[in-house]
Design a protein around this nucleic acid. Structure first.
Lengths: 210, 210
DNA sequence: AAAACTATGTAACAATTGTTACTTAGTGCG
DNA sequence: CGCACTAAGTAACAATTGTTACATAGTTTT
């Protein structure tokens, strides 16, 4: 049995399902920055996260990007789910935020287990709900927040998934993720620093007000 | 058998499932402007649209609103789906855009049929996928488009679901849906009129460039 | 018809965000 | 050390969006 499987999903799934997952799933470990899914990729397997974190981005025709949310251990990627169904192309990009371990499940098992295991059905529907909620939160941020609050929220979220109040990031990185420009981000970060909420360093930012 | 059922969902579902829907579903007709779901409502049944259209809005703590998308006949509301599962509160508002006919299905049938009918499972998963895609498109609009393009897209979408190139709407209505202010919308509409894309009238707008 | 209400037009100005351009500081490397 | 490169600070200005205030026009009520 894959070591991390029982410990991450044992409380959710019965032993029989855990065995099924163990038999058909393949273990995978990817380094920080690894591109798991690219725009337009066809998806043939769905990932179950056992450790680390993945950031999910939206990209438009012009190549402009926007961070949607992070997924962490115990989560799966609902986009993958819906893409799997109709063998559709991915509408998002997935990049490892940290070193990440995952178990890949072949698509066809997904709907098979849906009938076989009530716990799997719940897991899939719950995942859809969680991802939907995160998309709504992403919308809240873009639609209702000003850029300074978005930057601060971004820093806190990033500190959260990295389990560290010092995050390694450049102003340019933040600008890409928030679909803004480096100069704007630098300006707002400086204000946040003056307000005593963060500490700026080269290539890193410490969040004080967590 | 509910008349509109077979004609709207006959190509999707087998007769046995249509019968089940007919037996447990209740037919409902609501007028334009009717609030189907309010923020925080507990949802006990899911709607299958047979005619008309519903607009789905997000609202923040301050009461600011934002139009997410429209759903039309043949669709169901995926938010409802995910809310149903865990008896969770609604995170969105649903208002009838036109007179709308729907069939309400009790929650517990949803997961029961998931195993019983493969076509129902596909329908539910496809619905999640569709709604996810529409949330992503909503994000594209807010994140990547300027307000003038958002206004024009809004008008075209609204003309689409109303099956009419003349839409009945005030500038203030548009401002609410796009989370902007009336003056901004009036200004941009006037520009669109000067560009020959629309015609402005009191309480209505005609879209020329459809 | 006068009054009250609602919708729209528009000007002037403020706030936010984006852009360009240049400077300064840290880092890596021959 | 000198050079190249990357990150960050900052000023000046432009574009977009939001706000306030008021005028005008159509509609409804009395």
């Amino acid at each position: 049995m894959i070591k991390e499987l029982k410990e991450n999903y044992g409380f959710l799934f019965e032993d029989e399902l855990l065995n099924d997952i163990n038999n058909v799933g393949t273990f995978k470990e990817v380094p920080e920055g690894f591109t798991l899914i690219n725009l337009g990729d066809y998806i043939k397997s769905m990932p179950l996260l056992v450790s680390g974190a993945i950031k999910i981005l939206r990209e438009d025709e012009k190549g402009d990007e926007l961070l949607l949310y992070f997924i962490e251990r115990g989560d799966t990627c609902a986009m993958t789910l819906s893409c799997c169904m109709g063998q559709k192309k991915s509408e998002i990009i997935a990049i490892a935020e940290t070193t990440t371990k995952l178990i890949m499940i072949p698509v066809e098992k997904m709907s098979e287990w849906m009938c076989k295991y009530k716990s799997w059905q719940n897991f899939i529907l719950q995942s859809y709900h969680d991802r939907m909620t995160e998309l709504l939160e992403a919308i809240d941020s873009i639609a209702f927040l000003k850029m300074n609050d978005r930057v601060f929220k971004y820093l806190k979220d990033k500190a959260m998934v990295n389990h560290n109040d010092v995050i390694t990031v450049t102003h340019q990185d933040i600008a890409f993720d928030l679909h803004s420009s480096r100069v704007v981000i630098s300006r707002l970060l400086k204000t946040l620093e003056n307000e005593g909420k963060i500490e700026l360093h080269r290539n890193s930012i410490k969040i004080l007000d967590l």
